[in-house]
Computed example of a mutant assay.
Amino acid sequence: MVRFGYTLMTEQAGPADLVRHAALAERAGFDFEVISDHYFPWLDEQGHSANAWAVLGAVTQATERVELMTYVTCPTMRYHPTVVAQQAATVQLLSGNRFTLGLGAGENLNEHVVGRGWPPVNVRHEMLDEALEIISALFDGGYVNYAGDHFRIDSAKLWDLPETRVPVAVAVSGKQSVDRLAPLADAMIAVQPEPELCDMWDRTHDGRSAKIGQVPVCWDPDRDAAVRRAHEQFRWFAGGWKVNAELPGPAGFAAASQFVRPEDVAETIPCGPDLEPIIEAVKPFWEAGFSHIALLQIGGGHQEAFTDLAQRRLLPALRAAAEDK
């Protein structure tokens, strides 16, 4: 059965609102919630970027049922992997074993702030490999020492470990990253509905692993308003992840997207009041083999109406369509 999730987008709402939205989404019937982990918004117009881990701590107490997940945390520069492991174990304990640690190789947008520069992609993947090894060793319990090419660990230990080990999901984009990371993770994260990714991942995990995707939407009773809002806040999305990982700040994304038109955004993101375009945007993910699909409603001030729509009409429609696949 396909599970449908809700995105807590830290770039478009403040921390108190994010916690409130998390509770609304749980009451609306979403199966899980993912949270972005950024230091900057993609564009100045988004206007926010709260600390995801502080928000998650509050969300664990404002919700009771929904699974929670970072989507995604980079455990290599802005955070040291030992700190990520400690944070994840703490959230698992606070949530009553509802947490999955979603990890990725990161973006320059967020990681450059520690002043270490931005390494090339092959180095970032090496760093992620080492971080995954360190986090896994800490989840095993006991003292951990580690000497790698990128990290050294001296007698690290997690003193508060949950009885249920924190599952680790990792972001992949192609054969190289799947081959490298699938053996080190419990679940797959991807932003494109590519059946080949799921097939490659399943060969490592015998088809028993969760595969998690995400779809941005901009629901609004007024389609023109939805298109304007999607263009204002999400035109950065048109660059693709290879570009998006390299740009250093919101000004760079504004410059890179200056010629993206509202109609260009509306061609790739469902905008307006109709449910059918949303279903058609989500459908390729379950057809590709994704088990979990998170919806991202664009616009921090439009979450209440969206969660109400989800409860009354959208989630039942998505579940019915997925069952008919």
Score class of each variant (00 low, 15 high):
residue 254 A to T: 12
residue 65 R to M: 09
residue 310 A to H: 13
residue 8 L to A: 06
residue 308 D to Q: 15
residue 45 E to Q: 02
residue 193 P to V: 11
residue 205 H to E: 02
residue 83 V to W: 03
residue 38 H to A: 05
residue 58 A to Y: 08
residue 238 A to M: 15
residue 92 Q to N: 11
residue 141 G to L: 06
residue 28 A to Q: 11
residue 208 R to V: 10
residue 183 P to W: 06
residue 42 W to E: 10
residue 74 C to K: 03
residue 243 V to T: 14
residue 86 Q to R: 00
residue 51 N to F: 06
residue 48 H to Q: 14
residue 302 H to G: 05
residue 157 K to F: 14
residue 323 E to A: 14
residue 6 Y to V: 15
residue 194 E to Q: 14
residue 107 E to K: 02
residue 227 V to Y: 08
residue 286 W to Y: 13
residue 276 E to W: 03
residue 52 A to V: 06
residue 135 I to E: 00
residue 304 E to V: 12
residue 169 A to W: 10
residue 170 V to W: 08
residue 88 A to P: 09
residue 153 I to L: 01
residue 307 T to V: 09
residue 303 Q to Y: 12
residue 285 F to H: 02
residue 266 A to V: 06
residue 31 D to H: 00
residue 34 V to H: 14
residue 304 E to R: 15
residue 157 K to Y: 15
residue 19 V to C: 11
residue 274 D to C: 05
residue 311 Q to M: 03
residue 288 A to Q: 06
residue 140 D to V: 01
residue 265 V to Y: 13
residue 148 G to T: 01
residue 84 V to R: 03
residue 300 G to N: 01
residue 239 G to H: 04
residue 117 G to C: 13
residue 307 T to S: 04
residue 287 E to K: 07
residue 276 E to F: 07
residue 73 T to N: 05
residue 47 G to T: 11
residue 67 E to R: 15
residue 223 R to A: 13
residue 249 G to K: 05
residue 172 V to Y: 03
residue 142 G to H: 02
residue 1 M to W: 10
residue 165 R to W: 05
residue 1 M to I: 09
residue 173 S to A: 12
residue 81 P to N: 05
residue 40 F to E: 00
residue 89 A to T: 11
residue 36 S to R: 12
residue 89 A to R: 10
residue 318 L to T: 09
residue 150 H to F: 03
residue 249 G to M: 05
residue 225 A to H: 08
residue 81 P to C: 06
residue 185 A to Y: 02
residue 41 P to G: 11
residue 152 R to I: 10
residue 62 A to R: 06
residue 232 E to M: 02
residue 245 A to P: 06
residue 312 R to M: 05
residue 309 L to S: 05
residue 7 T to C: 15
residue 124 R to H: 04
residue 106 G to Y: 09
residue 119 P to F: 11
residue 219 W to L: 11
residue 201 W to T: 08
residue 146 Y to F: 11
residue 152 R to G: 02
residue 101 L to R: 00
residue 56 L to C: 08
residue 297 Q to T: 13
residue 4 F to H: 13
residue 69 M to R: 14
residue 317 A to L: 03
residue 224 D to Y: 04
residue 18 L to T: 04
residue 153 I to E: 01
residue 143 Y to M: 15
residue 124 R to P: 09
residue 219 W to K: 08
residue 81 P to K: 01
residue 60 T to D: 02
residue 258 Q to M: 12
residue 178 V to R: 12
residue 288 A to F: 09
residue 256 A to N: 03
residue 71 Y to S: 05
residue 154 D to C: 09
residue 70 T to W: 10
residue 319 R to W: 01
residue 37 D to F: 14
residue 142 G to D: 01
residue 285 F to V: 04
residue 308 D to R: 14
residue 284 P to Y: 00
residue 136 S to K: 05
residue 28 A to N: 13
residue 2 V to I: 15
residue 153 I to W: 00
residue 251 A to Q: 04
residue 247 L to F: 04
residue 124 R to K: 08
residue 285 F to N: 04
residue 128 L to H: 14
residue 139 F to M: 14
residue 80 H to L: 15
residue 255 A to S: 11
residue 323 E to Y: 05
residue 262 P to E: 02
residue 277 P to C: 07
residue 83 V to Q: 07
residue 178 V to S: 11
residue 78 R to L: 10
residue 27 R to N: 13
residue 104 G to L: 01
residue 118 W to C: 04
residue 209 S to N: 01
residue 202 D to K: 09
residue 166 V to Y: 14
residue 289 G to T: 07
residue 70 T to Q: 12
residue 98 R to T: 08
residue 237 F to P: 10
residue 269 I to L: 00
residue 159 W to K: 01
residue 1 M to F: 14
residue 312 R to L: 06
residue 148 G to A: 07
residue 282 V to I: 07
residue 167 P to N: 06
